[in-house]
Design a protein around this nucleic acid. Structure first.
Length: 487
RNA sequence: GCGACGGUCGUCCAGUUUGGUCUAGGACAUCAGAUUGCCAAUCUGGUAACCCGGGUUCAAAUCCCGGCCGUCGCACCA
């Protein structure tokens, strides 16, 4: 059984995530729900992201709408780049851009918005055949990854955003102004994005509706090395993969050797790495992969992917793109809005460095890297989640199902359940209850036993070591606060 | 989207070849009770499923058709 199967089974059995609308048979692939435990991990993961990136760097967070107007995507290039007519050979199944074929074989210029039936007619009239096998073509289809929606009684065209960052770009001028922003300025956002993937697969790894946590750093392109806060991360170790080679190198050395282009990129990649070091994803199984020119997105001049090693191989978790002024320039032109800002008395159109994180993939990776089977102890399954990411932080377990034990348990529960995610369980043997807790990653269990009745102390049982020690009930709150702290 | 294979309690599996005691069975999980009392104990009892729609038939989990979903491969993945 693969690690993916183990996690998938655990996710279904313990309510981390599961297919959307699963009681109906017409549910579509690529849509998944987070159950109670999944939501708690996701929220805690995002809290960590905010702590280590947004607050640490003084970024501003916004929450934009998921439906955005057509003009946004005219400017962003999404409409243009994803409305190509595609035909498929019936015989050999190869796919081709229909407009390219018609141009190549018949020399006819095909207008971009030509309707599908007209495209099909052109193919028929000009007797265009598959260049591979000379086979016939199917009727043409348009692949646009964006979901179209209709607004109001006139069915005005709008779209579900295929990436959250467009909100940040279009909101930039107001935020910069009203927040009295200064370059470099990070604007962050967590939210849903939507892509109509052709074949979504593998649970949370490829979704049609998914969470992104994106950061756009707006900067002065002439000051990419003028960054005093670089000192904070100059010794951060980065694992950079380029041209089939992995180097482990400090941020400073990476700059000096020209592996990273400037201090701004080095700084934010370092913050990102320091954040991931706190997620429980094994540092040795991550890398910053430099993308080659033919892999990069059309808007990107420098691109690194933060990747993690999983049972599927290397998986992209964060796309880090230097988007230059591509976005602000095109939004400025399309909307006819001035997006220049003042930086030290000089007017600049800011450049953008982006850290675009796929939340769902991160959650999966954290689960996979936390999953252990303890062969010594009857194959006990445990999720060694960081305590601050665990969906439940402590279990409260009466050793006996007797009234005085239950009463003490309830007292402890009400003492801490507003500040922490805790779970009370009296069902089954004490060993079984410990196992149930560690399977969802609960790091601590407090057991109310005979001695509790005498002296108001409880047993703490640790998930990873299975060790036990005693603590006063009055100290439980501070114990948790201490052991759930991040640094 | 194409091709191959598959879809049965929460999970894993038996049953489908050859339609009929299948009123769908087991294990684990779960719930209740008893017993026990610090690492998945035992006993008793319970809850719980044939992916959806249509067809063939006296009779469909089983055969046929369509759809949906899943795994793998191809293609796609700004």
């Amino acid at each position: 059984m693969s690690a993916f199967d183990d996690i998938f089974k655990l996710a279904l059995e313990r309510g981390f995530y599961f297919p959307s609308c699963e009681i109906y048979s017409d549910t579509n692939a690529g849509f998944w729900e987070y159950g109670p435990n999944g939501v708690k991990i996701k929220n805690k993961f995002l809290d960590l992201w905010r702590r280590e990136l947004v607050r640490r760097d003084g970024m501003l967070e916004i929450d934009g709408t998921q439906i955005m107007s057509k003009s946004v995507f005219l400017a962003s290039g999404h409409l243009k780049n994803f409305s190509d007519p595609v035909v498929k050979c019936i015989k050999c199944k190869s796919s081709f851009r229909a407009d390219k074929l018609i141009q190549d074989q018949a020399g006819i210029e095909v207008p971009e918005r030509l309707q599908n039936d007209k495209v099909d007619l052109l193919i028929k009239e000009n007797n265009i055949k598959c260049p591979n096998c000379n086979g016939e073509f199917s009727t043409s289809e348009r692949f646009n990854m964006m979901f179209k929606v209709e607004i109001g009684p006139n069915h005005d065209e709008a779209f579900l955003r295929p990436e959250t960052c467009q909100s940040i770009f279009v909101d930039f001028p107001r935020i910069f102004k009203v927040s009295r922003g200064r370059l470099p300025l990070g604007i962050a956002q967590v939210g849903k994005s939507f892509r109509n993937e052709i074949s979504p697969r593998q649970g949370l790894l490829r979704l049609r509706e998914f969470y992104q946590a994106e950061i756009e750093i707006f900067c002065n392109p002439n000051k990419l090395d003028d960054l005093p806060k670089f000192e904070d991360i100059k010794n951060t170790i980065l694992r950079i993969y380029d041209k089939q080679q992995l180097v482990e190198i400090t941020a400073t050395d990476a700059l000096e050797k020209g592996i990273l282009p400037n201090k701004l990129v080095a700084y934010y990649l370092s913050l990102l790495v320091e954040f991931f070091n706190k997620t429980g994803i094994s540092n040795k199984r991550t890398r910053l992969r430099r993308l080659s020119d033919d892999e990069k997105a059309f808007y990107s001049s420098i691109a690194f992917d933060l990747e993690v090693d999983t049972s599927f191989g290397w998986l992209e978790l964060v796309a880090c793109n230097y988007r230059s002024d591509y976005d602000l320039m095109s939004h400025s032109n399309t909307s006819k809005t001035n997006l220049y800002v003042m930086d030290d008395d000089v007017k600049v159109l800011p450049h953008v460095f982006e850290l675009s994180l796929g939340v769902d993939r991160c959650i999966y990776s954290i689960l996979e890297h936390s999953y252990f089977i303890d062969k010594e102890k009857e194959d006990r399954i445990l999720l060694k989640l960081k305590p601050y990411l665990s969906p439940i932080q402590a279990g409260i377990l009466p050793l006996l199902k007797k009234d005085e034990f239950k009463k003490k348990s309830m007292n402890l529960l009400s003492l801490i359940n507003k500040d922490f995610d805790v779970f009370y369980d009296e069902s089954g043997s004490i060993g079984r209850r410990y196992r149930r807790l560690e399977e969802i990653g609960v790091p601590f269990a407090f057991t109310i036993d005979h001695q509790t009745i005498d002296d108001d102390t409880v047993t703490i049982r640790y998930r990873d070591s299975m060790n036990q020690e005693r603590i006063k009930i009055s100290d439980v709150k501070s114990f948790l606060a201490l052991h759930l702290s991040i640094d």
